[in-house]
Design a binder for these strands. Structure first.
Length: 327
DNA sequence: AAACGACTCAACCGCAACAGG
DNA sequence: ACCTGTTGCGGTTGAGTCGTT
């Protein structure tokens, strides 16, 4: 492969991550928060380049990542968003907070592309009648909604940022990770962090049962191995068990952070903005410290929340055939 | 049971955008 | 305004897995 990678230091490791490396990375991020990736390899001793660390974190270790099969709703969301936004996977992923852009991209390339192709060739005639143009009714509706969303978000954000006075005493504050990222609560994830703890615990369990084996961390094998450990506490317990003294702090850290009452007040529709969310939701800019007065954003989020419910209904009610015609 | 091809998905690469000096 | 370092994003690759013959 062409030129040497970004970190062309000798001894930079490539290829699949081992559970040990994952643990090191996670514990480092637990201590320092995500970000400043450049310093991660140096400070952790990981023989990985910063990019690799960031990718591993964002695509695999980050809390709240949902793995496994995409639901029909997610599928439809992706199809429609792809039609609207093109291959802007990061933007699409921001509407599916539990999925990574990489996941979505992979899913699109491996499943949806084919599916749509099939549908298109299968119902060729009908499609050309009904939804031949990108200006179809359904798409138009969606586009308008999306544009409105984005507009609202931008407007609210810029207004909020322009207000220098952080009236955080009587208004809710929260950290923004994405200009128009969806409110985390929308997916009713009461245990996003738990899922991360599970991730790690699964890694460890798998690792302990199958000591260092190149593909041991692959999601499939890991998931099938630990299906019985379904509760987050199980995950946490086994996780700290496996790393004596190493990860208790990992969890206590989060719980200690959870007493930041400010997050809870978003809870009108955000009851499950869990500690891990508050800890990691600003992962892309950990030191941003944008304690933005929430009033307007909150309003938007709330408005948006209800709007989104409708959006999703709309989406779900749209048939795949409809969207196939968009391509 | 072995060989082969198709498929999946984690990880890599290169470029663009951004931030700080 | 320019330069340099860092981060984010999208396209692509290839090792591992699965299914078929």
């Amino acid at each position: 492969m062409g030129r040497p990678p970004c970190c062309d230091k000798i001894g930079v490791k490539k290829g699949p991550w081992t559970p040990e490396e994952d643990i090191i990375l996670v514990s480092y991020i637990q201590e320092h928060g995500p970000g400043n990736w450049r310093s991660v390899p140096t400070n952790t001793g990981l023989l990985r380049c910063s990019k690799s660390c960031r990718l591993r974190w964002t695509n695999y270790l980050r809390p709240g990542i949902k793995r496994g099969n995409f639901t029909e709703q997610e599928e439809k969301m992706i199809i429609h968003l792809q039609a609207l936004l093109g291959n802007r996977w990061a933007a699409i992923a921001s509407y599916l907070p539990q999925r990574t852009d990489n996941d979505i991209k992979n899913y699109w390339n491996t499943h949806l592309k084919k599916k749509l192709k099939k549908l298109q060739t299968g119902v060729d005639g009908q499609n050309h009648d009904g939804v031949s143009s990108p200006q179809s009714v359904s798409k138009g509706q969606w586009e308008r909604r999306l544009q409105t969303d984005i507009k609202k978000a931008k407007q609210a954000l810029s207004e909020a940022l322009s207000l220098d006075k952080p009236n955080s005493t009587d208004s809710v504050v929260f950290k923004l990770s994405h200009p128009y990222s969806r409110p985390v609560q929308s997916q009713s994830q009461s245990s996003t962090y738990a899922s991360s703890a599970e991730n790690i615990s699964r890694l460890l369990q798998n690792w302990m049962k199958n000591p260092p084996k190149p593909a041991a961390h692959r999601a499939n094998s890991v998931e099938t191995m630990t299906q019985n450990s379904s509760s987050s506490t199980d995950g946490a317990a086994s996780f700290s068990e496996a790393t004596p003294g190493g990860f208790d702090s990992f969890f206590s850290f989060n719980s200690s952070n959870s007493d930041n009452g400010s997050h809870e007040s978003v809870s009108v529709s955000n009851a499950n903005l869990t500690p891990e969310n508050s800890m990691f939701q600003d992962e892309s800019k950990p030191d941003l410290g944008d304690q933005v007065p929430l009033l307007m954003i909150e309003k938007w989020l709330l408005d948006d929340g209800s709007a989104q419910a409708h959006d999703e209904e709309d989406l779900i009610s749209m048939s795949l055939e409809d969207s196939a015609g968009l391509f």
